[in-house]
Design a protein around this nucleic acid. Structure first.
Lengths: 356, 356
DNA sequence: ATTCTATTTGGGAGCGCTCCCAAAGTCTCC
DNA sequence: GGAGACTTTGGGAGCGCTCCCAAATAGAAT
């Protein structure tokens, strides 16, 4: 400690220390098979003893490959606080990058800096590929990535760009299954609190709700569809607006909103699940801890992030293959809030009022 | 659209387009004052028309400055999901970086990849400085940063490294004020659920609790101090262990734990605040929405991130100045859960039991 | 041993930028 | 009008790496 210089060694010094040329060291660190085993060992020993780490900037300059991925999270800032979705996603992405020897650059795109961000992603030369977790339809970054042929993968499908890489949860299917479950339990007035319908998961989950009706030849009641905003407060307000229409079940498009809805129900003295059954979406940790524990559609968020990295690297390494599309099936986690099969006698009458 | 080449223009092309030399263009993009105004205009026009963006890798190689900051979040992964602290901190850091024309590389340090991460941060040559949001005492990254003289700033003070840059909330003071408030309201048996005591904010907030006793010449009761783990479940369990010791107030070292504690109290039919007053820490959004709304010590998390960036850039630009230490005073957000001044008649008896 | 091929290694060139020093241009003042 | 000082510009060198081609070496076949 202390005698070793704190300056970074470079290729040439490693080469000198192991008695080979620059090129050979380069081959070793890039796993080129054309190196004799003995030579490779010698070089690796020198690398270890000098604590050598290739300079990413130089490597990026020379090869155009930096082993850095960009993660772009557009959309309003607010959701990032309130919903554990993004932290878990970031976790999944970061874990995969650690494992695969990549690094992550993070852009939380604020609209006012979006143009600069796009320029930097596309032209900065520092990024091998981009993971975009956009949920809004008209995101300029996607168009820019397509035009500049930058490798990228979407987390969450995009209806206008179907021929690009994406990984997603089957939001439509998950919502449909949840609503079908409520119907199977005998609920007659199944409502939904949607996400913002200009966000793709918002629209998809709404479509799943509608699909459950269509499949049974039923028509949905527009009064029972309220648009929320994926926040707790939004779920609370939406539930309040829904109450006069006497739903006996609500499919809420996110757990965070469902928790808000639950609060509104309790305030109105409606029992869950006896008076109103509730199913959320995402299965965040708080869902299981709610009172009553919240039935929820679980999506494998961390796996989404992990897979996004794999798809992106695959695309970077084989640019000529077609786009990959991965859709994970969600799982309905049945807890208390959706209730059991209703016996005829407990079917709600036209208007029961609430209360203990 | 379409005719413009998708390849990135470089300095030489900008130089050619504006009829000056490479060097002059370089001066313009680096805001060197030694450029005639007319020339500068001409170059800027060319930059705009070519949509030029300096190559970060090349710039980093040549100058050793990349305009990239590293953000290292060590510690177990779990806290990242459950607590909005980190998302908000990241938000603050990212916002400041956007404003100041920097980018962020994110490392969620998993222990198994920590050595590689450190090597990359220190020797990768891609990072101008590092923001470390460590909360554990024996973090190897901090030692490594000190030894290699890499500019860095801690978010959260570190008791062993007092001569380094840091920004922090005054955790001791915030906790002391919260406990003093409970005492002033007439509570007799003020307990605390601490964070993990090997985490710095955990220890600091415990110390603040103790300080409130010391300042009044009181001694604290060890039975009323339970170590938690900053999770909801941990707060729930800690509260259960605390109940037999009949606290009439609890200072909980984080809101997430406080929400768990609240759940335990309600399950045990203890009224909040009548039987047990509660104060949390952090003032996360969920605190205000709890039932009853949770009194909490607010720390300016986003500002912490923002300031960390400023301090770090300051340090990068003036490496010879001494370390900066910034301590933000927290604010006690008084809501329902801590109750009002107790009249003598409502002082709790030895054991009242709970219940509606 | 000799030729031919396959494997392994070495060194030049260049990625796009900054830094430095020297050259050219401009202004001032006696 | 020319010396001196200051401002502005240009071009060489080099950051640490990869890529490519050529050279050296080893191995196989005759």
């Amino acid at each position: 400690m202390g005698t070793r210089p704190t300056v970074r060694p470079n290729l040439v010094e490693v080469a000198k220390a192991s008695g080979v040329s620059r090129s050979t060291v380069s081959r070793v660190i890039n796993n080129d098979p054309n190196v004799k085993a003995a030579t490779r060992e010698r070089v690796l020993a020198a690398i270890r003893s000098l604590n050598y780490q290739p300079n990413i900037a130089a490597r990026g300059l020379a090869s155009g490959r930096t082993h850095v991925l960009g993660l772009v999270i557009p959309q309003g800032v607010s959701a990032l606080f309130s919903d554990p979705y993004f932290p878990i996603l970031i976790q999944g992405i970061s874990g995969a990058c650690n494992r695969l020897d990549y690094s992550v650059m993070l852009w939380l795109a604020e609209p006012e800096f979006e143009r600069r961000m796009i320029r930097q992603v596309l032209h900065g030369g520092l990024i091998d590929g981009v993971i975009v977790s956009s949920m809004v339809l008209d995101d300029p970054i996607i168009q820019a990535l397509v035009e500049h042929k930058k490798p990228f993968v979407l987390v969450g499908r995009h209806p206008h760009h179907t021929d690009v890489n994406f990984v997603d949860t089957d939001n439509v299917g998950g919502a449909r299954d949840a609503v079908a479950h409520l119907m199977r339990l005998g609920r007659q007035r199944v409502a939904t609190i949607t996400g913002p319908l200009n966000m793709i998961p918002g629209a998809d989950r709404r479509d799943g709700y509608l699909a459950a009706f269509n499949e049974r030849g039923l028509v949905s009641n527009p009064d029972l569809i309220i648009e929320g905003d994926f926040t707790e407060a939004g779920g609370y307000l939406a539930m309040q607006r829904l109450l006069p229409h006497r739903p006996d079940a609500v499919f809420v498009a996110s757990d965070v909103m469902a928790i808000g809805a639950l609060r509104a129900l309790q305030q109105a003295n409606r029992r869950v699940p006896e008076d109103v059954a509730l199913i959320g979406f995402d299965d965040i940790p708080a869902a299981a801890r709610a009172q009553p524990p919240l039935t929820s559609v679980r999506q494998p968020i961390q796996q989404l992030g992990d897979t996004a990295v794999q798809v992106l690297l695959d695309q970077i390494n084989n640019p000529d293959q077609g786009p990959q599309r991965v859709l994970f099936p969600p799982t309905l986690m049945i807890r208390t809030s959706c209730g059991h099969l209703m016996r005829r006698t407990t079917l709600p009458g036209p208007h029961r009022g609430g209360g203990i």
